[in-house]
Design a protein around this nucleic acid. Structure first.
Lengths: 225, 225
DNA sequence: GTCTATATAGCGATAGAC
DNA sequence: GTCTATCGCTATATAGAC
């Protein structure tokens, strides 16, 4: 639950006493609601998730959710915002000019695969949101994310000028890396069905990371090792 | 509207007089409903789409949809099935042992990008469905699609044995190609926002195909030209 | 702060006039 | 075959007891 302002708070109605003294029981209840909401929004999307289902998942009466978070939309925005913060972090950590393209891309891909493994619900909420045309985060995509990508492109350009990397369109490279790594969370049902396993295991994620790394490094014309 | 049986018809209730003589007005109405449904299910998903919205999109009263297609779920399954048929086609056309890996993969990637450009709604319906855990097509994924992929793997293995292709995990290669090509339909909102264009143009799809091809051919250690 | 009980709106589906 | 009117249900949201 971060305080960063990535999304405009656009609930016109009066939100309940939020960001207040925060007693221990309050914190615990909000946390439970938050966890249940992330899981259910991730599986069924915004419209597919009912407040009753979230309440049941959190082990609380329905009214408490409204007391803490106001409307369903308010709760959804809070969950979304929480996700966006974590989403941006990995890139700035790994795509840096003081690393080689191989180090950076390999680390970034592993971080993104780890995100799909450890927080699949977060990835799915983001996917649901964008799939519907990103009604809640259009501004974020056009500003914060756009600038974020422009900064990454600068690093890539520097690498390419230094002859460390083949001159491929780096914005599209990012789209490709995002889609390949996130597909292991978002399209999980398809992947386990095709592989014939009940769930993805450590080895599967290793294979995924290795394959994606091979494609990206190979496409950038960097030897795999 | 195909007759192929990819999905089990599991509506217990009595469906209205379907697959009947089919007069011209009937055909026209059903077509309009079908088009509106594909568009709206693609944007808002199954639960996010109301029968009233489909009726409005088709320019018909709500009751007519029920008359032609029975329940909302029946209509959805009909739309889904229609999509699955087209979805499988491209691979069998391009991944063939009598082609070189470069020809096959290049052609397949271009066909998949064309699908994202020409039938984005179809791609999005599939994405929505799988994202929710594939409740309607789990059997299809575990049988038809699984066998489909196993057949593709055989071609890849033959190519790899012949030394035409690097021995990377080819099932994961398929997951990667699917995700990269479909992201241009499914994550369209994100991509146009980052690129700063209102819609994706011919050149954007060209760049996408070129980038994906570079990654795949590079990762398989085949020279790009 | 917490929960029960309920108001209100929109949904899928259908009956029945035409 | 086509459409209007409506039923029954479930959803969000809240009022008010505790």
């Amino acid at each position: 639950m971060s305080n960063t302002r990535l999304l405009p708070s656009q609930s016109a109605s009066s939100p309940p006493p939020q960001d207040k003294p925060a007693g221990a029981p309050r914190r615990a209840s909000m946390q439970q609601i938050f966890r249940a909401a992330e899981h259910l929004f991730g599986r069924d999307g915004y419209k597919g998730t009912s407040m009753a289902a979230i309440a049941a998942g959190a082990g609380l009466p329905k009214a408490n959710i409204h007391y803490y978070f106001g409307t369903k939309e308010d709760l959804y925005r809070a969950v979304l915002e929480n996700i966006l913060v974590d989403w941006l972090d990995d890139a700035t950590l790994w795509i840096r000019e003081d690393l080689t393209p191989r180090e950076g891309l390999e680390g970034y891909i592993r971080a993104k695969i780890a995100f799909s493994r450890d927080r699949p619900d977060a990835s799915r909420i983001f996917a649901h949101e964008v799939l519907q045309g990103a009604p809640h985060i259009n501004q974020f995509l056009g500003t914060s994310l756009r600038i974020h990508v422009q900064n990454l492109d600068k690093i890539f350009t520097a690498w390419q000028r230094a002859g460390l990397m083949r001159p491929i369109p780096t914005t599209h490279l990012m789209f490709c890396i995002w889609s390949m790594t996130q597909t292991y969370a978002d399209m999980n049902a398809q992947i386990v069905a095709v592989l014939g396993t009940p769930t993805l295991e450590t080895q599967d994620y290793e294979d995924a990371a290795a394959t994606i790394t091979a494609l990206v490094l190979g496409g950038c014309q960097l030897p795999a090792h």
